[in-house]
Simulated scan of single mutants.
Amino acid sequence: MPQMMPLNWLMLFSFFSGLLILFNVMNYYMIINKNIPISLIKTQKKILTWKW
């Protein structure tokens, strides 16, 4: 479409750039933090014995 005005191309570019930025910001800040109490987290230590 070479007959489009450059202003229209600039508007399209700004529109899609704004959508890209909005999508990235929403994905970054929409993380749901699940607060897990420390008492529920159990660390299990595995003892590795090397048999040479």
Rank of each mutant, 00 (worst) to 15 (best):
Q3Y: 14
M4P: 00
M5C: 08
M5R: 01
M5D: 13
M5G: 06
P6C: 03
P6H: 00
P6K: 00
P6F: 00
L7N: 08
L7I: 10
L7A: 14
L7T: 12
L7K: 12
L7Y: 06
N8Y: 11
N8W: 07
W9C: 13
W9Y: 14
L10I: 12
L10E: 08
L10Y: 07
L10C: 07
M11E: 14
M11G: 03
M11V: 09
M11A: 12
M11L: 15
M11W: 04
M11Q: 12
L12H: 02
L12E: 01
F13S: 01
F13W: 03
F13P: 00
S14G: 02
S14M: 03
S14E: 04
S14W: 03
S14I: 01
S14H: 02
F15Q: 09
F16G: 01
F16C: 04
S17H: 05
S17W: 14
S17Y: 14
S17N: 10
S17C: 11
S17I: 07
G18W: 14
G18Q: 12
L19Q: 05
L19E: 06
L19S: 00
L19F: 11
L20G: 10
L20R: 03
L20K: 02
L20I: 05
I21C: 02
I21S: 01
L22A: 15
L22K: 03
F23M: 02
F23Y: 13
N24T: 03
N24W: 08
N24K: 00
V25L: 08
V25C: 01
V25G: 00
M26S: 07
M26L: 11
M26V: 08
N27R: 13
N27G: 03
N27D: 08
N27S: 09
N27I: 04
Y28W: 10
Y28D: 11
Y28T: 14
Y29P: 05
Y29R: 13
M30I: 02
M30P: 01
I31S: 05
I31N: 08
I32P: 02
I32H: 06
I32N: 03
N33P: 06
N33G: 08
N33I: 13
N33V: 13
N33K: 14
K34T: 08
K34Y: 15
K34E: 10
N35G: 06
I36M: 06
I36R: 00
S39K: 06
L40Y: 13
L40K: 07
L40H: 10
L40V: 03
L40R: 05
L40F: 11
I41Y: 00
I41S: 02
I41N: 04
K42C: 11
K42T: 13
K42Q: 15
T43H: 09
T43C: 05
T43V: 11
T43I: 10
Q44T: 15
Q44V: 15
Q44Y: 14
K45A: 07
I47F: 14
I47Q: 11
I47T: 13
L48N: 04
L48R: 04
T49M: 04
T49C: 00
T49E: 14
W50N: 08
W50E: 15
W50I: 15
W50S: 08
